[in-house]
Computed example of a mutant assay.
Amino acid sequence: MKIKTKYFDEVEINEEDIITFQNGLPGFLEEKQFVLMNLEETVFQVLQSVTTKALAFIVVNPFGFKSDYSFELDDQVVEQLKIESSDDVSILSIVTLRDTLAASTANLKAPLVINVKEKEGKQYIIQKTDDSTKEYIFKTVNQKEDK
């Protein structure tokens, strides 16, 4: 199937690659179907709405820049996403792009949890965490000192 995208113009996608967010995403509750697309030669991906060309989020694997990142999913989310094994799960963080890539941040307080096997996803808001909604992806000396 062909979709129009924010960053790649019109592309062909496999319907099997569509990830369903049953409750949408906060602020976009009507948007329920997305596809992940790679940004070549980067650590970033694009979570593109299947139905709305302008709705696309830059996302990144948070474990790539914060190795001690962790949280526990509650049983309700595990059941909702039909998670049977940790191998079925992909965790992504939505990126806020700044003027420079070094100043860009990722939301670690509300990761996207995706069951890659079942193609079900949810943005999970972590209640008790010291992680930030604006965690620097590329830490510089000054940013490390700010923490």
Rank of each mutant, 00 (worst) to 15 (best):
L55Y: 02
T51L: 04
K66T: 00
K2L: 09
Q76A: 15
L97W: 03
T52M: 03
E120M: 15
L112N: 02
Q48S: 06
G24Y: 08
N23L: 13
F44C: 06
S49G: 09
A103N: 11
L39V: 15
E30I: 04
Q45V: 04
I94E: 05
G121V: 01
E40R: 12
P62Y: 09
D68G: 12
A103G: 09
Y69Q: 10
E145V: 13
Y7D: 10
F65Y: 08
I58Y: 01
L36K: 12
Q33M: 06
D99E: 15
D146L: 13
N107W: 06
I126N: 03
I3V: 10
T100C: 11
V11W: 04
E145C: 09
E79G: 04
G64R: 07
K32D: 06
V113I: 14
E84S: 11
K4S: 12
E135F: 02
I137Q: 07
Q33Y: 08
N61C: 06
L112S: 01
K53A: 11
E135Q: 14
I94N: 00
Q127T: 14
A110N: 10
L112R: 02
V11M: 07
N14I: 01
L73W: 02
E84Y: 02
E15L: 07
V89F: 06
N23T: 15
F34V: 08
V141F: 04
I94M: 11
T52R: 12
D88Y: 00
L101G: 00
Q76H: 14
E31S: 13
V116L: 00
N115T: 08
N23S: 15
Q45S: 12
T5V: 04
L47H: 03
S90Q: 14
V116M: 10
Y69E: 00
T52E: 13
Y124P: 02
E12F: 03
V46R: 00
S86K: 15
N38Q: 14
T133Q: 09
K128S: 13
L92P: 05
F138K: 11
Q123S: 13
I18N: 05
K6C: 07
E118V: 02
Q127N: 12
K122G: 07
L25F: 03
I3W: 06
D146S: 14
Q45C: 10
D88H: 09
L97C: 13
A102Q: 14
Q123W: 08
F8K: 13
T133K: 11
T51K: 13
N14Q: 12
E30D: 14
A102P: 02
S93E: 00
D88T: 03
G121K: 00
P26Q: 08
K119S: 04
E118R: 09
Q143T: 14
F28P: 09
Q76T: 15
T96S: 15
F65A: 08
Q33V: 03
L55K: 02
K122V: 10
R98M: 11
L39R: 10
D87Q: 12
I126T: 08
F63P: 02
Y136C: 02
F8S: 01
